[in-house]
Design a protein around this nucleic acid. Sequence first.
DNA 1: CTAGGGGTTCGAGCGCAGTCTAAGTCAAGC
DNA 2: GCTTGACTTAGACTGCGCTCGAACCCCTAG
Lengths: 132, 132
Amino acid sequence: MKIAQLARRSGLTPHTIRYYERIGLMPVADRDGAGHRDYGPEALRWITFIGHMKSAGMPIAEMLRYARLRRQGPATGPARAAMLRARRAMVQQQIAALRATLSVLDDKIAGYDMERAEHDERNTASARASAT
Amino acid sequence: MKIAQLARRSGLTPHTIRYYERIGLMPVADRDGAGHRDYGPEALRWITFIGHMKSAGMPIAEMLRYARLRRQGPATGPARAAMLRARRAMVQQQIAALRATLSVLDDKIAGYDMERAEHDERNTASARASAT
DNA sequence: CTAGGGGTTCGAGCGCAGTCTAAGTCAAGC
DNA sequence: GCTTGACTTAGACTGCGCTCGAACCCCTAG
């Protein structure tokens, strides 16, 4: 798979994928005869994973640490598991924060709806009055 | 309340609060005799609100739009309500994304735990063998 | 043989959201 | 009167994560 296709499938741009390779977040890609990057399916799986971690607010530096451990082999499994567990806790906190935000939004929205209702009521009342 | 106290209560720094005022995200603060900013309790309420919006991923530019509408008075209520409803939908999407991430993390963590269990098992087996 | 449409590299630039420095002012306590 | 410490300003700087441009290369189809 060429870089454009991987880009389409992952939702990134070729520029970004090359950038990820430059900084060590993606493994150095194999090349075809023309010197073009040639990806296997695991590349897409890895991009998908880091996409999840990104949406979980993991900074690139931490993903680099994780990727480095991965390259060092299975002995680093416990260290990687510890990182993921720590991140898991943070994700749960984020979810809790977003839920709190959601209820703040709901309260504010309800407030605006109430204002609108009062406004409508006044209009209805004056409409009735002028109809009388 | 002086800026340092507002900073402590809000979790921001005085620098950041002044920055917010500079860009129009905070109203221009009243001053005391010495020319120092003097805040009332509504300042803290506003900071708390924008903190929620920030954690919901709202960019400052959008908060500025909201703040501008607010300054324009009650007639902009419906416009503000529409913004909040749009943001509410995004927050729900974010929560869904984080939940997906959570289950990705759980799967990976379970994978690491399994590896560890297999590793332990091999050790136990060889320990038994050498004990025989 | 040429045009088009991929791809390549290197390096500069950008947008966001702060963050910090320097130089100065002011009020309070010793 | 002097020090201390919190405050003021304007403006430069930082860190993150891309994003883009320029110049070049290579294959394919017409």
